[in-house]
Write a protein that binds this DNA or RNA. Sequence first.
DNA 1: CATCGTCATCGAAGCGCTTCGACGGCGGAG
DNA 2: CTCCGCCGTCGAAGCGCTTCGATGACGATG
Lengths: 330, 330
Amino acid sequence: MAAPGRGVTIADVAARAGVAASTVSYVLSGKRSISPDTARRVMEAVAELGYHPHAGARSLASRRSGVLAMMLPLRDGMHLPVLMQFASGAVTEARRQDQDVLLMTADEGPAGLARVAASAMVDGLILMDVEVRDPRVEALRRLGLPSVLIGFPADAEGLTCVDLDFTAAGQVCADYLVERGCRDIALLGASEAVYERRTGFAERVREGFLGRSGPGAAVWPCPDDPISVQRTVKELPAANPDLTGLAVHNEPAVGHVMHALADAGKRVGEDFHVVVIGPDEVAERVHPQLPSVLVPAETLAEIAVRHLMRKLDGLDVPAATLVEPQLTAR
Amino acid sequence: MAAPGRGVTIADVAARAGVAASTVSYVLSGKRSISPDTARRVMEAVAELGYHPHAGARSLASRRSGVLAMMLPLRDGMHLPVLMQFASGAVTEARRQDQDVLLMTADEGPAGLARVAASAMVDGLILMDVEVRDPRVEALRRLGLPSVLIGFPADAEGLTCVDLDFTAAGQVCADYLVERGCRDIALLGASEAVYERRTGFAERVREGFLGRSGPGAAVWPCPDDPISVQRTVKELPAANPDLTGLAVHNEPAVGHVMHALADAGKRVGEDFHVVVIGPDEVAERVHPQLPSVLVPAETLAEIAVRHLMRKLDGLDVPAATLVEPQLTAR
DNA sequence: CATCGTCATCGAAGCGCTTCGACGGCGGAG
DNA sequence: CTCCGCCGTCGAAGCGCTTCGATGACGATG
């Protein structure tokens, strides 16, 4: 009793329930019909002994490990809390489907994919923060490991991708500002680095935003330290005196933007409008609170896991899933 | 060639190298001496075929899965970026030791521990954000699953724990402020909830801080929204007019604190001093930049993984490891 | 009453790996 | 020159599970 559950095998359960090991297996998997009476005795034995199937043995015999890999990068300019939301959303949904999640880092690169695929350590893979040209994508195709991407690479042929519709998000923000009567509007984005890496979502927000705004609209990449933000916000009116609306797609910078605007004498919500693309807390933690379009990290992760599970079960799933952005007015 | 590496078994490697399967195994594990010539042929075959051992088979036969679990909470008041640093630090170090990391959430609780332990899915466990009274700790003891805690529960008997020396961190902050000539000092902490949950580190910072400061010192719990921060900062001088030094142990609030102090006419770095316990970025992203004591998440995670691996190898490790805090002046 | 299905269950054969004991071949000691 | 011991290698026996085919038992059918 020192370590209950340790070393309990299916044979122990079978003996206890007075059946064959294979019968226990069938009760547990439901792959053959079993009399209710036998099933009950088996389940009781399982509970009494605290039996949990040996993961390795199971995966060896059934060619299913019950583990999903999540490969997520920790690159410069990524907003860590959002990544954590993705991770937690994925784990939660995976557990609901009796799967576990292995955390991989992006810098293992394609070799890491080959490793987990060949070792049959995981059944499928969720790839995060996909870049427009991503070396992992090619490896993925080659390996034939079931996978779902969060984000869209340039060539999504044959892949399953899920993401927020960032183009629509850019549009929603532009529309919001225009409806508020803003004359000219601008998008204050993430630092240059994010655009240079050609991270898909940043580009798409820009396109969506510009597509809905007048000829005076501009996009300003901006690092998130207070000095840079202050400087950028100061430059805005100089570049365009008619600017009265700003969309901010740079989570950590939002607070600084608000202070810079206050310093510049803008009264946000009155003669100047700001809308945020980012987590609710960011938009709620400034004064005044701002309208925002949320990146629904948990929802995206959940969809990704569900799609992946369907693929593992041989069902088919839409190649591209775009989640509609919601603008929360505040 | 459509899916190279798929289905390559140790027998394939053995055939290719002209040896027995067991020999391949010994080459790979180094558990018996092998002639250099044979070893070379085997390694070549491994490389040519892209062989990776089947994880399930390996764990079944060797009773080692090569996977470590990391159970980390996503509770209110936790600073997500720091958690992500822990996770990434652990994954990085684990990979260095040829291990993978399974991500578990705290809300699976003790049952989750029983599951992974009994299924032999993981070899060991790292438990994060340990509370003073944590139900998982008891389960851990009972299961006998090798583990390392990041944080200290009330009863650490028989456990291996690693953490920043938060008591010392509190002391360092108090000392810093006193040395700067501050008359009275205060600690602005996290929201009440964190203290109520009796999260170990918050309490220890407080004790360390109070232990080194004069009788006028005070601790102010504080939520991290701008309104609450503004209010709390306004109350400080009312409660103690001689207050000229503040330690902030609440990452997201730092920016707001600085603005509130500016509004109150304090000139930080001159007639008023502030020190931060938190990530470097937080202290660097305000103006003026602040001195800070870092929570070395990656280092802690790295130590935890290393200790865990030593335990798995039957070596012994110190029961308690406290990392000395470093104050970075800026 | 003999025959045929169906249902519930069993036994055995692997899944791919590690590990143990065994066994040739070789060099050094006697 | 023989014997012993060691080194390098092999074959076989599992690890705990799933799954396939086989087998009784039993009710329905002709």
